[in-house]
Amino acid sequence: MKNEYEKYYVPAQSPWPIIGAVGLFFIAVGSGLSIMQMGKEASSGVYLLLAGIAVIIYMLFGWFKNVIDESMSGLYSKQLDISFRQGMAWFILSEVMFFFAFFGALFYARMLSVPWLGGADNNAMTHEVLWNGFEAVWPLLTTPSGETTQAMGWQGLPLINTLILLTSSVTVHFAHVALEKNKRAQLKIFMVLTVLLGVGFLTLQVEEYIHAYQELGLTLESGIYGNTFFMLTGFHGLHVTLGTIMLFVVMLRIFKGHLSANNHFAFLAAAWYWHFVDVVWLCLFMFVYVI
């Protein structure tokens, strides 16, 4: 019996990876300059940061369009679908390690650095060498310059955002069930709800940052506590933004009649990523806000 082989589509060289790299470079440099130029008007770092974000969004929609066109043209096979799944799994794993590094920085500061500076393990580097009134407690609400800040509580906006993300995980699951059962009306409703919940989370996070800066005095200049707070919540916010864009694109495809019960990896990829973002937020909520 003659073996049958599936075709394996190899796309032409794409400009999107290098465009994405340029966008990430702008974001990295722009973020650094923004911090260095904090407090100055018309910061060039802010403009570079916004330009990088715009380039990344342009890259995402352009790359998604190419992949969608190839998929709808019937160029993909079952073998390529397996490659997509493996690629998405490795991508999420790399994101897990990304957040491990930042949580590691938080735990290092809380569990090792601060106690050590307070004289733990017979260390001579005590508060007497640092500044008057130094206490080895977390969060550190006083900076070496003597400025004070307030900690962000877990009640209010952080708790509401936690409930929003947990609800969005439920709605995207129900959307998946509806897709597999070919219930298109329910699928559309749950996808719209999920996207709206993602937008709602980001909106409330902006309000939280405004509250932190204007009312709590909690800024990027608020020592190690402010640094780790904005680093973790900010990078998570970027991931929520990416996940919301992915879900939005999938929602548009669903309204155009794309995806079926037997062929919907685009939906699965966005759902996997969204569940990952939710789990990260639960860890962040516990270790940054509550504990």
Score class of each variant (00 low, 15 high):
residue 42 A to Q: 13
residue 43 S to E: 10
residue 43 S to Y: 01
residue 44 S to K: 07
residue 45 G to P: 00
residue 45 G to V: 00
residue 46 V to C: 04
residue 46 V to S: 07
residue 49 L to V: 02
residue 50 L to Y: 06
residue 51 A to E: 02
residue 51 A to C: 05
residue 51 A to T: 06
residue 51 A to R: 02
residue 52 G to C: 01
residue 53 I to T: 05
residue 53 I to S: 01
residue 55 V to T: 04
residue 57 I to M: 07
residue 58 Y to I: 11
residue 59 M to E: 12
residue 60 L to A: 09
residue 60 L to R: 07
residue 65 K to L: 07
residue 65 K to A: 12
residue 65 K to G: 01
residue 66 N to T: 14
residue 66 N to I: 12
residue 67 V to F: 10
residue 67 V to S: 08
residue 67 V to P: 01
residue 68 I to N: 15
residue 70 E to Q: 11
residue 70 E to S: 08
residue 70 E to W: 06
residue 71 S to Q: 15
residue 72 M to S: 13
residue 73 S to A: 15
residue 73 S to R: 08
residue 74 G to K: 00
residue 75 L to H: 06
residue 80 L to P: 04
residue 82 I to L: 14
residue 82 I to F: 13
residue 86 Q to L: 13
residue 86 Q to S: 12
residue 88 M to R: 03
residue 89 A to H: 10
residue 89 A to V: 09
residue 91 F to Q: 02
residue 92 I to N: 00
residue 93 L to Y: 12
residue 95 E to S: 07
residue 95 E to A: 12
residue 98 F to D: 05
residue 99 F to Y: 05
residue 99 F to H: 03
residue 99 F to V: 00
residue 101 A to H: 04
residue 102 F to I: 08
residue 103 F to Y: 06
residue 104 G to R: 03
residue 106 L to K: 01
residue 106 L to P: 02
residue 107 F to G: 05
residue 108 Y to Q: 06
residue 110 R to S: 00
residue 111 M to I: 11
residue 111 M to W: 14
residue 113 S to G: 05
residue 113 S to P: 03
residue 113 S to L: 14
residue 113 S to A: 15
